[in-house]
Design a binder for these strands. Structure first.
Length: 595
RNA sequence: GGUUCGGUAGCUCAGCUGGAUAGAGCAUCAGCCUUCUAAGCUGAGGGUCAUUGGUUCGAAUCCAAUCCGGAUCACCA
């Protein structure tokens, strides 16, 4: 139980005894005391005035007295300012917390709670390489999954690869038409980038054909439908669903190129999945469920054979679930997958990490799942995150402003390499590092900086990716926290920790500040899981690192005032480094032993 | 237009289950390395919390309206 909850419970108990009526946690608030006032935690009295019939000062006196009398080991005193009862917590409480937990690398981590959750993220299309937006998605999904694990959930990471559909056929048609047999090997390109080029070539050719038709007098709308390259693409999709061998062969060949490219990128960013689903395997189940839904009357079939669901009574529109030619649309496979996930894993909750541009789609999916009475439909949750934009505005593939994931990673690591070399040279530490260790360090810092930059803002909000700020190593950044960890480790290498307990030391303000912060770690993890929000954790770790740095410049650890202080501070350093490491790990970021 | 999300310092963001004088980082300016890693620390300046009204002892936070911006409303995914 957190100290805040302990205080709340203590206050409820004392109040109930004082006023012989029941009180509950919701009757009042407990906050951390603001810095400018004396005390550690504050009971806000205003909301209790009516119920107790007391004035703030009198109520504060009675409650403060009672709480100190009831728990002399916890509260050492109090003061009242206006309607605020500020309580002082005994140093012995903080010292005990430290003694019990400083050496525990699992501090803050919860035991298994019996619940199973699936987190789906990444979910790329196989027609183009990953970009900056995918990185936010991946980092978020991975971190949310790890945060849930730390809170005791059994978590399955999954990914749905959109490996079929009209967009894939576009790349295939373009490759057939323009590649002349070229391959990633023959061109020396990464497979996903190679295929992406043909997707672009398709669009160029398509546009040219439309233009030609319009010049010939056709209306644009009609031209979009009649362009030969589009017609052959649609024909190819039909052939694909019919299983035509040469189409399937080409499809497999090109997708494998893409997978090889994706694997490399995932490996570089440290992303992993327990289960990868392929749309090509799930869409048939989707079609089956559509057929069942049609029998059940959840869906209706129009005269042209297209299948629809009417959601106007739910405030939405009529939505197509199967085309008139019988091929499946985007949502068809999602319906199948929703059921499959549940059947395979028996999950209690199904989280989808998908951009907020698909809010409507996900709302529809959940509604359909509920109407079809799929198992656990009500526990489908869309973790909707905001788009990543550039200082110049949105990323647009047409204008070539899309930030490629691989290019960005390469650039981040290059910049962090330059910075690291420069810093290590300045301080004369460069010679202590072997060259493999340096390579690893550049990657740790470069990737850590990028991950922290993308995870530090509230997932729900759109964010601006400023390349200049993203490579910063000062202030609210990943490298700042990595550096703090490294300098703690540096001390601990020189000053081994004795196995002695500290019991009677009086805490200095900066020492107590660290303990107060450390105590909150567990609560922060719970909150981050509840909100599916890694940024809450990122902000917390940053503040902890900042507190440590302030402490570090004022108080010496190695040359502490006496042996007991030294032991206390070493314990503090160990515990801070553990929490920084755990917290960063849950964000997917490694912390170096030295840098 | 319907639905929906947002508007807090020059910039990027916290704070939003109502509580004390609205915080941080960057940028700007001024300081701190003969002691454990200066990728650090300390300080200064910088705000009509979009606007108006309401609820309340108390509103950046809740409610309503307005203004501005985004997303979405495809037999695309």
């Amino acid at each position: 139980m957190s100290i805040m909850q302990t205080i709340q419970k203590a206050a409820v108990k004392s109040l109930s005894a004082l006023y012989t009526q029941p009180f509950s946690d919701t009757d009042f608030q407990v906050n951390q005391t603001k810095e400018e006032f004396e005390g550690d935690y504050t009971v806000v009295l205003f909301s209790l005035l009516k119920k107790t019939g007391q004035a703030p000062a009198a109520l504060g006196e009675q409650l403060g007295n009672a709480m100190v009398a009831d728990h002399p080991e916890l509260f050492t005193g109090y003061n009242i300012i206006k309607g605020f009862l500020n309580l002082n917590i005994a140093d012995s409480f903080w010292l005990q917390l430290l003694q019990e937990n400083y050496a525990d690398p699992k501090f803050g981590i919860q035991a298994f709670n019996g619940k199973k959750v699936m987190v789906e993220y990444s979910s790329p299309n196989t027609n183009k390489p990953l970009h900056l937006g995918h990185l936010r998605n991946n980092f978020l999904g991975w971190s949310v999954a790890e945060i849930l694990k730390a809170n005791g959930y059994d978590v399955f990471k999954s990914c749905i690869v959109n490996d079929r559909g009209i967009h894939i056929c576009k790349s295939m048609i373009a490759w057939e038409s323009f590649a002349g047999g070229a391959t990633p090997e023959s061109t020396g390109m990464k497979g996903d980038h190679f295929v992406g080029e043909y997707y672009v070539k398709f669009n160029d050719a398509y546009k040219a054909e439309i233009k030609g038709l319009v010049t010939g007098g056709m209306e644009e709308k009609l031209a979009e439908k009649e362009a030969p390259i589009m017609k052959s693409t649609q024909a190819m999709l039909l052939d694909w669903e019919a299983g035509k061998p040469e189409v399937i062969d080409l499809w497999k060949k090109m997708n494998n190129w893409v997978y090889a490219g994706f694997d490399e990128t995932y490996k570089n960013i440290g992303s992993d999945f327990d289960k990868i689903y392929y749309e090509s395997n799930t869409y048939l189940l989707g079609k089956k469920i559509v057929a069942e839904g049609l029998r059940k009357g959840v869906f209706v079939q129009d005269e042209d054979n297209s299948v629809w669901i009417d959601l106007t009574n739910d405030g939405l529109d009529r939505k197509i679930v199967q085309r008139k030619d019988g091929t499946s649309v985007y949502i068809t496979q999602d319906i199948g997958l929703a059921q499959q996930k549940y059947e395979e894993y028996g999950i209690d909750q199904s989280i989808y990490v998908i951009g907020d541009e698909q809010n409507y789609h996900m709302k529809v999916l959940k509604l359909i799942a509920e109407k079809l009475e799929l198992p656990n439909a009500e526990n489908i949750f869309h973790l909707s995150y905001g788009m990543v934009e550039l200082p110049t505005g949105k990323m647009k593939s047409r204008e070539g402003t899309v930030v490629d994931a691989d290019d960005l990673l390469t650039e981040m690591i290059k910049v962090s390499g330059n910075t690291t070399i420069q810093k290590l040279e300045e301080t004369g530490k460069l010679k202590e590092f072997a060259s493999e260790e340096l390579d690893e360090l550049y990657k740790t810092i470069g990737l850590g900086g990028l991950k922290f930059f993308l995870l530090r803002v509230d997932p729900k909000k759109k964010m601006i990716f400023n390349p200049e700020e993203s490579i910063d190593v000062h202030g609210f950044t990943g490298p700042f926290i990595q550096y703090t960890h490294a300098r703690i480790k540096s001390i601990l290498r020189k000053e081994p920790l004795a196995n002695e307990t500290v019991q009677h030391s009086t805490l200095l303000p900066l020492e107590k500040e660290l303990l107060v912060s450390l105590e909150q770690f567990e609560l922060v993890l719970i909150q981050a899981a509840k909100e599916l929000n890694p940024s809450a954790l990122a902000i917390y770790i940053f503040n902890l690192a900042k507190s440590f740095n302030s402490f570090y410049t004022v108080h010496s650890i190695a040359n502490a005032e006496n042996a007991e202080k030294k032991q206390l501070r070493l314990q503090l350093a160990v515990m801070v480094s553990n929490v920084l490491k755990t917290g960063m790990r849950l964000l997917g970021i490694n912390v170096p032993e030295r840098m």
